[in-house]
Structures are given as structure tokens and as C-alpha cells.
Simulated assay, not measured.
Amino acid sequence: MAVHTEHHRSHRNGWLRAAVLGANDGIVSTSSLILGVAAASTTQSDIMLAGVAGLVAGAMSMAAGEYVSVSSQSGTEHADLNIERKALAEHYELEQEELAAIYEARGVAPGLARQVAEQLMTNDALGAHARDEIGISDTGQARPLQAALSSAATFITGALMPLLVAWWAPPSLLIPLVALFSLLFLALLGATAAKVGGAPILKATMRVMFWGALAMALTSAIGRVFGVVA
């Protein structure tokens, strides 16, 4: 007999969010920096230097920020697990009752809830409490180094797109081409993320493009003002 299964997408939320955030930041921050510097009437070599500096600084900032953030989460998880480990060693029966009460609250009959709690704790008491009491699972555990490297890699991927356009574009067309291609990259990123995550494609695409266009417009205006003042 065939087993019916559905294909859910919520398990992708963690890595999808990190990938989209990194690539989006890379595109928006680097294109905005390039446009701001270009609007100040600087040379193409200065624009490229600013873009490369922004790429390196942004990638390191993303990696460091993600590492610190996820390390804090990891520390909290380990502290909670140690508390639970001590509670199991000192009050095993009470912890079993607590787990059964959690299942009862979810709609399981009292007798069956106690059975389930007993069997799960016989197999892996700490794992059962970590998953159902604290909300920590093996797939969802914080991994600081992995998060840092992923964020840096996706940021660099996103930042390279407007940077390569700036390198390829003739000076007279640099600003419109970087702006145009950056918006196209953002549209592609938003559509891809929505497709993978099962969200409405048009809404996600327009949202990403709007904020990207706003950031580029503001930095261009600031660059133009400072270019005139200089």
C-alpha cells in the first residue's frame, strides 16, 4: 500500500532566508554604493575600488554578524539542554509527567499521552524534551560557522553582479546600466525565492525591487549632492 505524503516547503525557511538575505544585501548595498560614488562624478577606477571595498567589507560584516548572532543562539540552546539534562537526572518521573501533559495539551488522550511520553523517554529522554518542550531539533540547531560562511558566500554572489556590470559598462552608461541590471537581479532573486518557498511570485518580486530601487535612488541623490558640493 502506497503511503501518501505531501511536499512541504517550511523546512527550507532557514537556509532560504539566509541565502536571500545575503544575496539581497550584496546586490542592494554594492549597487547603491557604486551609484552613489558614480553620481559624485568620480572616475571608473574609483568606482570599482569603492565597489570592491564594499564587497569585502559587506561580506565580512555579514559573516561576523551572523556568527555572533547564531553563537548566541547556540549558547542559549546549550544552556537550556543542560537545565533539562539536570532535571531529568534529578526528577525523572516529574519530567515524564510534564512531557505527557504537553501531549495532552495537543489533544492526545491522557492514557495514550503517558504511554507516548514513557516510550519516547525510554529511547531518548533528552531528545524528546528538547524537541517537544524546548523546541530544539537536530535539523534546527544553531551552527555558527556554517551560518557565517553561508552569509558571506551569498553576499559575495549578490555583490559581484552589479560590480561586474560596473566593470563592463562604458563610463557614460554606467549609472543607468548598473541600476537596470541590479533591479533585474533583484527581480530574479525575489522570483526564485518565492518559487522555492511557495510564496506569491509577483508580490515577492515587487517588494524586493521596491526597496532596492529606493536604496539606489537615495544613495545616488546623496552622491550627486556631495559631487556638486565638492
Score class of each variant (00 low, 15 high):
Met121Leu: 04
Pro144Ile: 00
Ser45Asp: 12
Ser45Cys: 00
Gly127Gln: 07
Thr42Ser: 15
Leu81Val: 08
Ala147Asp: 00
Ala109Lys: 07
Arg85Glu: 10
Asp138Val: 12
Ala87Val: 01
Asp80Cys: 07
Arg85Met: 05
Ala105Thr: 08
Leu112Val: 14
Asp80Val: 05
His78Cys: 03
Met48Ile: 15
Val37Ala: 11
Thr154Tyr: 08
Gly65Gln: 06
Glu84Asp: 03
Thr154Pro: 11
His78Arg: 14
Ser71Glu: 02
Gly65Ser: 10
Gly135Pro: 05
Glu118Phe: 11
Asp138Cys: 02
His78Phe: 08
Leu145Ala: 15
Val37Arg: 12
Gly65Thr: 04
Arg114Pro: 01
Ala87Phe: 09
Ala57Asn: 12
Ala50Phe: 09
Ala38Asn: 11
Arg143Tyr: 06
Gly107Asp: 05
Glu95Ile: 02
Ser137Glu: 06
Ala128Arg: 08
Ala148Thr: 07
Leu81Thr: 04
Ala147Arg: 00
Ala40Asp: 00
Arg131Gln: 14
Ala117Glu: 02
Leu49Met: 14
Gln119Tyr: 05
Glu98Thr: 09
Met121Asp: 02
Tyr67Met: 07
Glu97Lys: 15
Leu120Trp: 07
Pro144Trp: 02
Gly36Asn: 04
Ile134Leu: 15
Glu77Phe: 07
Ala109Cys: 00
Gly58Val: 01
Ala40Trp: 00
Asp80Leu: 14
Leu88Asp: 01
Thr42Met: 15
Pro110Phe: 09
Thr42Cys: 13
